[in-house]
Write a protein that binds this DNA or RNA. Structure first.
Length: 283
DNA sequence: GATGAGCGC
């Protein structure tokens, strides 16, 4: 059937050549090297045999052990129950990710108009300290520990068992109770019932480098694998509602917090790498 | 980079 002169099917000719040439041979040598023998057909029809002896090098990719460990974590959220490793339908692994940190991401994301800024300034200007009439809140007054608000000088203070505690509350006798001091009877918040009241931050982690797209639930998902998360606070801009870049995560157990701190520090969430450390007492 | 919200006569 086939007429060699009038042939147009070159693919078939290739096939013929392949059949004509011996398959490459690979021989493993005792010293760990390999001898590879390949045959090729030159243009002029001569058969060439090539013998190569190669030494195989094992290429080790170094993965941070902590990163390797995280890869074993069970998936959560929408990816819960999916097998480990990237899902081809949602994840592209070959993409060249260019990491471009922006120094002023907050400012650039901020589309606050000029008049809004002015409004904020006006609001600030209205602040008047009740102690020294300065332009700060009474609670921020440098004299708040030594002076009572005007018109309340000394009133009732002598009757209290813990005058300095009362001063530190910033209430100085006013009826206002800051949110974190409310429901003291609940016992969940103030640890030292006999002294100054402070939030229990013994098992609280501060998480920084949190992307503005992060939500509290995202953090809860990540951290709750280490123990009972009692509270997640994500600092947000009050006007824009966008995350400010840091958060607090509290655990019921400080040991769990410690583990979580070690394990999640360096974890990539969104396009950022989380930094986790124990929270210090807020100023 | 950052240590929470919450209040104003």
């Amino acid at each position: 059937m086939s007429n060699v002169a009038g042939r147009t099917d070159w693919a078939e000719e290739d096939d013929d050549d392949q059949v004509a040439l011996p398959a490459p041979q690979v021989t493993k040598n005792k010293d760990g090297t390999e001898t590879i023998v390949t045959y090729i057909m030159r243009e002029d029809g001569k058969k060439i045999k090539t013998t190569r002896r190669i030494k195989k090098t094992v290429v080790k990719t170094t993965v941070n052990p902590r990163v390797a460990e995280r890869k074993q974590w069970a998936k959560f959220g929408q990816e819960a129950n999916k097998p480990s490793g990237p899902q081809s339908d949602t994840t592209s692994v070959a993409e060249n990710i260019v990491f471009r940190p922006q120094a002023n991401w907050k400012a650039s994301a901020d589309d606050k108009s000029e008049h809004e800024k002015k409004k904020a300034n006006l609001k600030d200007a209205k602040i008047k300290c009740r102690i020294c009439s300065g332009d700060h809140w009474t609670t921020k007054c440098p004299f708040k520990d030594t002076m009572a608000p005007e018109g309340e000088a000394g009133a009732g203070v002598g009757d209290l068992d813990e005058p300095e505690a009362a001063g530190a509350l910033g209430g100085g006798g006013s009826s206002y109770v800051p949110p974190h001091l409310r429901n003291r009877a609940g016992g969940a918040v103030g640890e030292k019932m006999g002294g100054k009241y402070e939030r229990d931050d013994l098992a609280t982690l501060r998480v920084t480098n949190v992307s503005e797209f992060t939500e509290e639930q995202d953090l809860r998902d990540i951290f709750s694998r280490f123990g009972h998360v009692t509270r997640v606070f994500l600092a947000k801009d009050r006007e824009t509602g966008r995350a400010k870049g840091f958060a607090f995560v509290s655990f019921a157990d400080r040991d769990d917090a410690k583990t979580a701190c070690e394990k999640v520090d360096g974890y990539g969430l969104g396009h950022l790498i989380l930094r986790v450390e124990f929270a210090k007492k807020s100023t």
